[in-house]
Amino acid sequence: MHFPIAFFNGQYLPKQEISISPDDRGFLFGDGTYEVVRIYHGKPFRLHRHIERLRYSTEAIRIPFSNFNQIEELAYTLIQKNELPHGEAILYIQITRGVAPRSHSFPLNTSPTVYACLFPVPDFSKQRKEGVRAILVPDLRWQRCDIKSISLLANVLASQEAIERHAHEAIFVRNGWITEGTHTNVCRVVKGILQTPPLNGHLLNGITREVILELCHTLKIPVEEVPISETAFTQSEEILILGTITEIMPVIAVNDIQIGNGKPGPITQKLQNAFNELLSSE
């Protein structure tokens, strides 16, 4: 499916007509923030939470953008202009610091560049049903992974390594402790308890992670937000990776070590069913 209309600095334009200045700090430095929102049945899922997180990230790196009320309007306008009243898509939103002479330090009066577009949803239904492989890689990123920054080189390289090693995702390990995947949060199940690393500067506050923790409360699945060692991780009964595009994905092997019986586990399946029911009701 093709979505030709995008948003750029207050205008809705055919994507091929949009041009970005070579002096934009997003292009030169990766100086910006972004959000990825899933659209189900023509409606953005948990849009307000994504906007809150975009505000948090943008304020954290001191980009002078305040018109966050615009984000909801542009989301629904893009859905309408791309003729997607009841369909599925992914909404991408990016805010950079804008155009300025190249310098590591930034001027305080730049006009932010705002870009948004839709793109198709990849079909991961087979992977969600059968499970995927993951690899562990050293977490070489900076200390503020709670900010959803467009500076993603470490994630890009780790994700490419996963593909080249015939895995679906690369999961970061920092000083012996699991943090998150290149584009997912991570959970494991041990003795019927769902465990996930606690929020800190080393991982993102994932929206799907929030939803899953809410569903665990509803389903009376015990939850622990605790550090998870690399050794304990590979001894899990179940492993799940969570994300806007990924949704709830079972991991059946890590570094060629089988997880559980090598099939998606019962808690994973219970959460997948509850998540699908939630989508049908919202």
Rank of each mutant, 00 (worst) to 15 (best):
L153N: 08
Y92Q: 09
G131V: 01
L215C: 04
R55I: 09
P122A: 15
G176K: 05
K263G: 00
K148P: 04
Q195R: 10
N261C: 10
V132N: 01
I163V: 10
Q16K: 08
I193P: 01
Y76F: 15
E210K: 11
G176Y: 10
V189E: 02
H50L: 10
L194V: 12
E214D: 14
I248K: 00
F275R: 12
F29M: 09
I267S: 02
R62F: 09
V226G: 00
V186E: 00
F106A: 06
H41G: 13
I79L: 14
L78S: 04
T231I: 11
T96K: 03
I61K: 01
P138C: 10
C187Q: 07
I228K: 00
R55W: 05
T113E: 00
P264C: 11
D23L: 15
S105E: 12
L279I: 12
P64M: 15
E59N: 13
R53F: 03
P112M: 02
Q269A: 12
R133M: 03
E230V: 04
L78Q: 03
R165A: 00
A60F: 09
T196Y: 04
L13T: 06
G206P: 01
T33C: 14
I171K: 06
Y40T: 03
E282R: 08
V37F: 03
K191G: 10
S105N: 11
T58P: 02
I259R: 00
R133E: 06
G260Y: 02
E52Y: 12
N69M: 14
N276W: 10
P266H: 02
H2I: 14
E161S: 09
D123R: 13
D146V: 05
Q143V: 11
G260E: 04
V36M: 12
A100P: 01
S149H: 11
Q11S: 15
V251R: 00
A274T: 12
I245K: 09
L271T: 02
S57R: 09
Q160G: 05
G30Y: 09
Q272M: 14
K43R: 15
T268A: 13
F29A: 05
G42C: 08
P264I: 00
E17C: 10
L242Y: 02
R49T: 02
E214K: 05
E164I: 07
M1R: 08
R49E: 08
E130Y: 13
